[in-house]
């Protein structure tokens, strides 16, 4: 439906082709979260890998810092419509986390948990093969608390709510369980290129 009198500000072709449907490019880095920024420091941070309720391995900040580092640079897309290009992150890939724990994925489904008790589900297939890292730096510096520091997940091929801030653990689940937003009308998978914003999209 054409809106009378609206012409908009279409982006240049080289920007448009990098923007998933319904997204627009921003230069700042908007903050999105449910509540206050939790007070997590490198001293209080830890990351726990679980199979259901059972802990498989836990890393403190200094233990985590010894794992191999992976860098990633590229575009991120938030379900609130902004996209940001060429963001640079570094951290530990989910593959390296599993291999350090000496485990193979016990199920095909996972749920990430944050220090703010936020949860989100991501299929294991979307985490392995270098597709996801637990990031500990942004643009070469520690991640600011408002953006999830000291550590956040990064699964950049999905909408950014799938990359929880202040991440504290990864739990394998028997079946695909919705997390916080997925139980409140947001899509279970969240592929920006298929514009999977809400349940049923």
């Amino acid at each position: 439906m054409v809106t009378r009198g609206f012409s908009g500000r279409p982006p240049a072709a080289e920007i448009a082709e990098r923007l998933p449907p319904g997204q627009y490019l921003t230069d700042d880095f908007p903050v999105l979260q449910l509540g206050p920024t939790p007070r997590v420091t490198e001293e209080t941070w830890s990351f726990t890998l679980r199979d259901g309720p059972k802990p498989l391995k836990r890393w403190t900040w200094s233990e985590f810092a010894k794992l191999p580092r992976t860098r990633w640079k590229g575009d991120i897309h938030c379900v609130t419509k902004w996209s940001k290009f060429d963001t640079a992150w570094a951290g530990v890939s989910v593959d390296d986390i599993l291999s350090d724990a000496g485990v193979t994925a016990p199920t095909a489904f996972t749920l990430f948990e944050g220090f703010d008790d936020y949860t989100t589900n991501v299929p294991f297939a979307d985490l392995t093969g270098g597709k996801a890292i637990v990031a500990t730096s942004y643009e070469g510096k520690p991640i600011p608390p408002d953006h999830g520091g000291p550590a956040r997940l990064l699964v950049p091929h999905l909408y950014f709510w799938k990359s929880p801030k202040w991440v504290k653990g990864l739990r394998f689940t028997r079946k695909d369980e919705g997390g916080f937003w997925e139980l409140r009308g947001y899509h279970m998978y969240g592929d920006p290129w298929r514009e999977q914003r809400f349940t049923g999209d």
Binding site: T3, F6, S7, G8, P10, G22, T80
Partner: peptide, 14 residues
């Protein structure tokens, strides 16, 4: 909210 231009370009905001 979604607005659409005659050329099909559209913009959405909350």
């Amino acid at each position: 909210v979604r607005l659409t231009a005659p050329d099909g370009y559209s913009a959405q905001r909350s």
